[in-house]
Amino acid sequence: MLKPDQVALILLAAGRSRRFNDGDKLAEPFLDKPLAYHVVTALEPVHFCARIAVVSDTELDFAALGYDVVENPDPSLGQARSLCLGVARAKALGAEAVLVALADMPRVTAAHIRRMMDAADGPATIVASSDGTQPMPPALFGKDMFDTLLKLEGDQGARDLIRRGRHVIAPPAELVDIDTQEDLRELRELYGLRTDGLPELPPALVIRDEARRSD
């Protein structure tokens, strides 16, 4: 078991959004805030020893939200590069473990993160999330794994490591990962949003508004 104040949160927010096609995916509006801020808000109640955001070319101000911001100058080197930068900062800060989360997973909950910490079993721990089928982030690593994490390369990140760790299951809906415009559209539809941030108009108002525009 790990206590939150032993753990540094590493939020990976430096992806190139290649599959999203256009714009800064993490800044896309969803409900009342940018997409990336949902996991930030969800994890606010967890008292981590540090909060680290690894970013690249984004307009979002994670520093204003209490994060130690680390710039990834070359995200083309893959997710592992961002992970290494975050782990290096956490190691320098004396963290006993790191919790690696993705900024494009807006439905992660603090309750799930606490269950992961309860499942930790020492400095060599690896605890990953699972939808019941496959392991995935968020993932928790004890300090004995830091040097291994710092040697990772490419886009696979820590996937091979989390496959051999303990897995804490969460409902698939909590672990949704927004990679494409279609993913975001489906998430908005789940919340009944026609245009994100704008409420649905009752049919009578829609007809009245269309009639007014045609006058």
Rank of each mutant, 00 (worst) to 15 (best):
A120Y: 01
D147F: 12
I169P: 12
D155G: 13
M117I: 01
G132Y: 11
V176W: 07
R51L: 08
V54C: 03
F141M: 00
H112L: 10
P138A: 00
L149E: 14
F146V: 09
D74Y: 05
L65C: 11
F146D: 04
P135N: 14
V127I: 10
A119M: 00
A173G: 10
C84G: 13
V70H: 11
A95F: 14
N72D: 01
L60E: 05
V69C: 06
G132M: 06
Q181Y: 03
A64M: 01
G165I: 03
A103Y: 03
L161C: 13
M105G: 00
I113C: 14
R51T: 02
G157E: 01
A95W: 11
L85F: 14
D131Q: 12
I169Y: 07
G122C: 14
D131C: 10
S129Q: 12
Q79V: 09
V87D: 04
V176R: 05
M117R: 04
T180V: 05
L161D: 03
M145A: 06
L65I: 05
R114L: 10
R164I: 12
L65D: 15
Q156F: 04
V69H: 10
L85A: 08
R164P: 14
G78R: 07
A92P: 15
L187I: 02
K143E: 13
S82F: 09
M116G: 08
L149K: 05
A103L: 15
A170P: 09
G66R: 13
P172T: 14
P73V: 01
D177Q: 14
E189D: 14
L175Y: 02
D160C: 09
M136P: 01
G132S: 08
A173Y: 09
G132L: 04
R166H: 10
R163Q: 14
G142K: 11
R159D: 06
V176P: 07
T58Q: 02
I113S: 14
G165C: 00
P171A: 08
I178K: 10
H167F: 15
L83W: 00
D104R: 15
D144I: 10
I178V: 06
P73H: 14
A111I: 00
R163N: 11
L184P: 09
I126W: 01
F62N: 09
A170T: 05
A101M: 10
G165N: 10
A110G: 10
G154L: 09
A64V: 00
H112F: 09
E153F: 10
V70P: 13
G66D: 14
P137W: 09
L161M: 12
V108K: 08
L175R: 01
S130L: 00
R114P: 11
R89I: 12
E186T: 06
L77D: 04
M105C: 07
A90L: 13
L102T: 04
D118Q: 03
A103V: 04
A128D: 03
A170N: 02
K143L: 08
L85P: 15
Q156P: 00
D183Q: 09
E96D: 12
V100T: 06
A119L: 05
L184M: 05
Q181E: 02
G86C: 11
T109V: 15
D68N: 11
G78Y: 03
R185E: 06
F146L: 08
R164H: 15
C84N: 02
M117H: 03
L93I: 05
Q134W: 15
A103K: 04
V127G: 02
F146I: 12
D118G: 06
Q156T: 04
A173N: 11
G94S: 04
F146N: 02
T125F: 12
G165D: 07
L60D: 13
R89N: 12
Q134T: 13
A95D: 15
